[in-house]
Design a protein around this nucleic acid. Structure first.
Lengths: 321, 321
DNA sequence: CTGTTAGCGCGTTCAT
DNA sequence: ATGAACGCGCTAACAG
């Protein structure tokens, strides 16, 4: 409970000297330094960091907004952010938004109130006009293409990535190709859908809305998708799945139902998560940890400048296509 | 960038009045209130929350230390904490410790410096004598039995839970039972080991150290365990696995290797995660989200009192035993 | 090398 | 109903 003033009194010096000692600054005589140190020891003094925040106008806190904390995709991004944060002596404030707008707003408000120095939004839910009202208050970094916005981003080009995967499936002889995604709205979802439509046009296949499975994120969602596949009279021969977890669930359930993979159904996943490796699932590798690292570095680069960094992905051929 | 003083000047009132308005306090005439509101609007004023923290000695920030952010076990606990935090207007500061001591210490130091109001340690790595030096600085809550310590906890009794699972396996006719856990050290790990040894004594079976698989956390670890099982000349007929993810990995790999479950190998998992349900894995249900909720409530209950709350678990019979 | 002093931005008595 | 003044705990000129 002691403060810097108490220490000064105890050590018989001024508060400035105490401040110098606790901040490892030079120009303090050895004896005074030791007197201060002794007083600190005796009184169990610890500096109140909130006073420092007030003065410096900085908290060394970075906000991270993610929809779900229990999903490997975001967990890996957070891991990348966390590792780099540690190196740079920053801490993270986690906002689990559940895709609820008001939760994202809470994060934005913390930026406004200077409780966090910057905010990383891994999957935006608020509309841009809402976000725009906040960008003057501090850096906000996104995981989606923001080249037409006044905010930085580190993102994967979902159009290109989807096209790459679809082309590969087509190259492997598939024509009836379905896709399985999370959200259909949002920049990323729209880019994926667009890539899918453009691809179908390119190979001259009709657009079948029932070939699009959306709202799926987890392993356990695989069951519902396989059910859906089984009940179709003209099912796709291949599925592009935007998450390895879901892909793994589909592979597992397919095997239980006696659906042969890749012969009756080909599967290509996304991210190259460990589960894809162990289950030998063909996938598009996304360097999520690295992405997190870059997001963080962008967040603390105090330059006013805005940057857009595109992440490149890689096809990992395995046994499900 | 405007502060309360600027607003006061703009609105032609005192800072006190401004303060009253922004904190929704009574005793401000309508006209002055509106003048203040107008000034706030015009200047894009937002209160600097750090000054409030300094005065109040409180930040509405709760620290949460977990070893890995990409593991469903901890993710569910964090979800429980996060939900309750939102309701109570608190925010979370996440510390991913990777079981590295200095990372946990960083969290403890933040408590000491009052940057967080309380700290929840979901899986402790620091020794107790290290922790002890911090308990006076604020509430620290643990997920392990701390009944002999001066710190609160909400925990599962791992001894009882393990015994329950082992008894069930024995009741189902198994005698050669192996276990598969994460850390062997730590309160929880030791309790599990003790339960295992006591159980073996009870049923008069010898202790086989090779029947203990430790250091496994994820789905993909299942492969290594199955490999280990295959290479044994006298493998166990049942495995108690302390995580559903690992159990799921074992089941998946076993099927690939043609090991029949439960006939050749019985598996019982832990937590009752969604993956256990979809893969029909027998498991011990642990109410992790609820546990997170209780952890949070304990963290903000400003009573100096210490409490120890034991969580009860439930056997969920499915098809892997 | 050392101490005095003035803020950082806001909440809060205590008069009026 | 309103405002002056003090203090939260610390840092940073500035003077010496």
């Amino acid at each position: 409970m002691a403060n810097i003033k108490d220490i000064a009194k105890m050590a018989g010096v001024s508060v400035t000297t105490v401040s110098r000692v606790i901040n490892n600054q030079p120009y303090v005589s050895l004896e005074k330094r030791e007197a201060v140190l002794r007083a600190i020891e005796a009184s169990k003094y610890e500096k109140n960091i909130n006073a420092v925040h007030l003065i410096k106008g900085k908290t060394f806190l970075i906000g991270v907004a993610i929809p779900f904390s229990n999903h490997p995709y975001f967990a890996l991004i957070v891991e990348g952010i966390a590792n780099e944060a540690l190196k740079n002596n920053y801490k993270l404030v986690l906002f689990q938004t559940n895709y609820e707008e008001y939760r994202e707003k809470e994060a934005l408000d913390m930026l406004k109130q200077k409780q966090i120095d910057a905010l990383i939004i891994c999957s935006r839910i608020c509309q841009w006009d809402t976000i725009d009202a906040y960008i003057d208050y501090g850096p906000i970094i996104f995981c989606e293409d923001t080249t037409d916005k006044k905010a930085s981003s580190v993102y994967m080009n979902h159009y290109k990535s989807f096209t790459k995967a679809l082309d590969y499936l087509h190259y492997k002889g598939h024509k009836k190709i379905g896709i399985c995604v999370g959200r259909r709205n949002g920049t990323n979802g729209e880019q994926r859908l667009l890539a899918y439509r453009d691809f179908l046009n390119k190979i001259n296949e009709p657009f079948e809305s029932k070939y699009i499975f959306s709202g799926y994120y987890d392993f356990e969602d695989g069951e519902e998708i396989v059910q859906g596949l089984i009940s179709m009279n003209n099912p796709p021969s291949a599925l592009l799945v935007s998450s390895d977890q879901v892909a793994a669930g589909i592979v597992t359930c397919s095997k239980e139902r006696g659906i042969s993979i890749p012969h009756e159904l080909a599967i290509i996943g996304f991210d190259n998560q460990p589960i894809a490796k162990v289950m030998n699932i063909t996938t598009i590798e996304v360097p999520l940890v690295e992405m997190g690292r870059k997001l963080f570095l962008r967040a603390i680069s105090n330059q006013k400048s805005i940057s857009y960094e595109e992440i490149t992905v890689k096809l990992v051929e395995r046994s499900t296509v």
